[in-house]
């Protein structure tokens, strides 16, 4: 195991972790605040990726620029879904909530298929498959952009949560919605905020995916599943936990894949084993509180 290989594996793992974090912080936030598992979360990634793809293909908008547009669009979509659909099932049994979000997911998948066919789509910009060479380590620009974006957006989320009035309100709602209500917090607005952030962050992950990978109508499942693993490992509702769990899974998958024969085939299974072990020892996840 050479040092160069170790460095490269770490870089690969970090960029994967960045993508995981972008997808999962939103999911865990939505769960923390509303106690709803959003099965359509992965579809936000898919829609973000398509938005970025079409903005680029039709109007030549660079993904770095379209990121802003996608964030706005996805914020709007998240708010819309919250006010028109999710709001109605907040007090309903969990099964209804699951059916609703699952239904939203399937609807988006089929809509994407209908509108944009099943073809793989990817954006080709000068930095989409280019890399920065640091000694023996190659850092993909697209994926580094992903890490940077994940750090910035996660950082902003922390600032929001711990430095702003609304962020404090959001944490309060997560801990005790009724007590938050009598603090005079407009709880429905907090729900909208959480869903909007969730959708926007997943959409940002989609932009990264459209540049450094590709997208197709069912790609949301891939990200959704991973995000659920991350969120459960980190502790449902814990943004910090999701960040740490993203790092753990990203690095573990990269190291297993790089240093073990057949590792790429096993990496995912090993992630699940870690998840199971943690859940056995700590049923509420690494940083879960309930």
């Amino acid at each position: 195991m050479s040092l160069a290989l170790l460095a490269q594996a770490t870089a690969n793992g970090l960029s994967l972790a960045g993508l995981y974090a972008l997808v999962s912080v939103g999911l865990t936030l939505v769960f923390g605040v509303m106690r709803i598992l959003n099965f359509a979360h992965g579809e936000f990634v898919m829609l973000g990726a398509y938005a970025s793809f079409w903005l680029f293909t039709l109007w030549g908008l660079d993904p770095l620029a379209s990121l802003a547009v996608v964030l706005v669009l996805m914020t709007g979509l998240g708010a819309l879904i919250q006010t028109t659909l999710v709001k109605r099932v907040l007090a309903a049994p969990h099964l209804n909530q699951i059916l609703l979000t699952f239904g939203i997911a399937v609807t988006f998948q089929n809509l994407a298929l209908l509108l944009w066919t099943g073809d793989l789509r990817a954006i080709k910009v000068w930095y989409s498959a280019s890399s920065l060479t640091l000694g023996p380590v190659s850092l993909s620009l697209g994926r580094t952009f992903g890490i940077g974006l994940a750090m910035i957006l996660t950082g902003l989320l922390y600032l929001l949560l711990f430095r702003t009035e609304y962020g404090r309100a959001l944490r309060a709602v997560a801990q005790d919605p009724e007590a938050a209500l009598v603090m005079g917090i407009p709880i429905q607005r907090v729900y909208i905020l959480a869903m909007a952030i969730g959708a926007a962050y997943a959409g940002a992950a989609g932009v990264v995916a459209s540049v450094s990978m590709f997208t197709y109508p069912l790609i949301g499942f891939l990200f959704g599943l991973k995000a659920f693993c991350v969120v459960i490992l980190g502790g449902l509702g814990s943004v910090f936990g999701a960040t740490v769990a993203s790092l753990i899974l990203g690095l573990v998958e990269s190291f297993v894949g790089t240093f073990f024969a057949q590792g790429s085939s096993w990496a995912e299974a090993i992630s699940f084993v870690i998840l199971l072990l943690v859940l056995l020892l700590r049923p509420k996840g690494l940083f879960g509180v309930e």
Partner: peptide
């Protein structure tokens, strides 16, 4: 070496191959 089809990341495998 085997890997999972459709995985979002093949850099571990490619890094291994490159070595």
């Amino acid at each position: 070496e085997s890997f999972k089809s459709g995985a979002p990341d093949l850099t571990p495998l490619l890094t291994r191959a490159k070595a």
